[in-house]
């Protein structure tokens, strides 16, 4: 009897949670499981459940386009996250130094974040245009040997993508870091001044360690967006020149759409999922599940 009343007591709440239940279980568990299952099959255009073990994974890792994609992602990820963190932190510090027109600068640094990756990619594609872009302007000024057309070179194109991504994403990091800095007890600053600790040392030895949680959050967020990077590359380089700026996300989409190879696409998607789970699992557990219980 008691159990029954408990079951009925928040029935409305349970009914209202059905869409959430379907999304959480149906999409984020079943769909993911379905994708992973497909990676062990020989599916081409349509799903076909004959299990063939790890064949697709072996093929995947012997495919140049995939290994280049992964390599690009690593370079892109390290540079993008590194630059975002460093520049974002410096900008946050500058803004936090009690400056005039703080609001104006903050607005300027953050607005690219409101733009889509497609827009970002197209703007920077134009800025980096070899014939009419920045390179041309500088050369016309008299510096004939100036080179700044990374998108035309297989070697440097990925760095062009990094620049665009940093331009778009640094504002967010600045925002997070600024919130972190503003959250620091003002008396810490006073104590450091009374102790006679120079500003840069205060930042390096006291403030940065204090905002470590913010930095961790920033890295996790950026790492996630690195794994997902797709539209930026599609818009800015289309993966080229050749396959020089291919990325895993694009590999997956291309393979299950135009290339009609669902199984290898799903193997690639599973590979993308892996680092996310390893990286985010503990973080989510820590931030949401454990804290909710406490």
């Amino acid at each position: 009897m008691k159990r029954k009343t408990r079951m009925w007591s928040n029935l409305s709440a349970k009914i209202a949670s059905i869409p959430m239940l379907i999304t959480a279980v149906g999409v984020f568990i079943l769909c993911v499981a379905y994708s992973i299952a497909l990676s062990f099959t020989p599916s081409r255009y349509f799903p076909k459940f004959d299990f063939i073990g790890f064949d697709q994974y072996i093929r995947l890792w012997t495919t140049d386009r995939w290994t280049i994609s992964v390599y690009n992602l690593l370079i892109f990820g390290v540079l993008f996250i590194g630059f975002c963190l460093v520049i974002g932190f410096i900008l946050a510090v500058l803004i936090d130094r009690n400056i005039r027109m703080e609001g104006v600068f903050r607005t300027i640094f953050l607005y690219p974040y409101a733009l889509s990756f497609v827009v970002t990619g197209l703007i920077w594609q134009w800025m980096m245009d070899p014939a009419l872009g920045i390179q041309n302007v500088v050369r016309n000024l008299g510096w004939e040997s100036f080179n700044f057309a990374p998108l035309t070179s297989t070697e440097y194109a990925i760095y062009g993508v990094v620049i665009a991504a940093v331009w778009q994403g640094t504002g967010l990091i600045m925002c997070l870091m600024l919130a972190g800095l503003r959250g620091i007890d003002r008396e810490i600053w006073k104590a450091a001044r009374v102790d006679g600790i120079p500003l840069w040392r205060t930042y390096v030895f006291i403030i940065i360690p204090m905002i470590r949680p913010v930095i961790v959050t920033a890295v996790v967020l950026k790492a996630i967006s690195v794994v997902r990077v797709y539209d930026l590359v599609v818009a800015q380089t289309g993966g080229g020149p050749g396959i020089a700026t291919e990325v895993p996300a694009k590999f997956v989409i291309d393979h299950f759409t135009e290339r009609g190879n669902v199984a290898i696409a799903m193997a690639a998607a599973t590979m993308m999922l892996l680092p996310v789970l390893l990286l985010v699992g503990p973080w989510v557990y820590n931030e949401y599940v454990r804290r909710a219980r406490a």
Partner: peptide, 24 residues
Amino acid sequence: NVLFGILVMGAFVPFQAVIYPLIV
């Protein structure tokens, strides 16, 4: 809590791992 945990994890799952089953 578990439901919410799964949902938050979902925020991080790359679209690529979910899109194809959704298409089907």
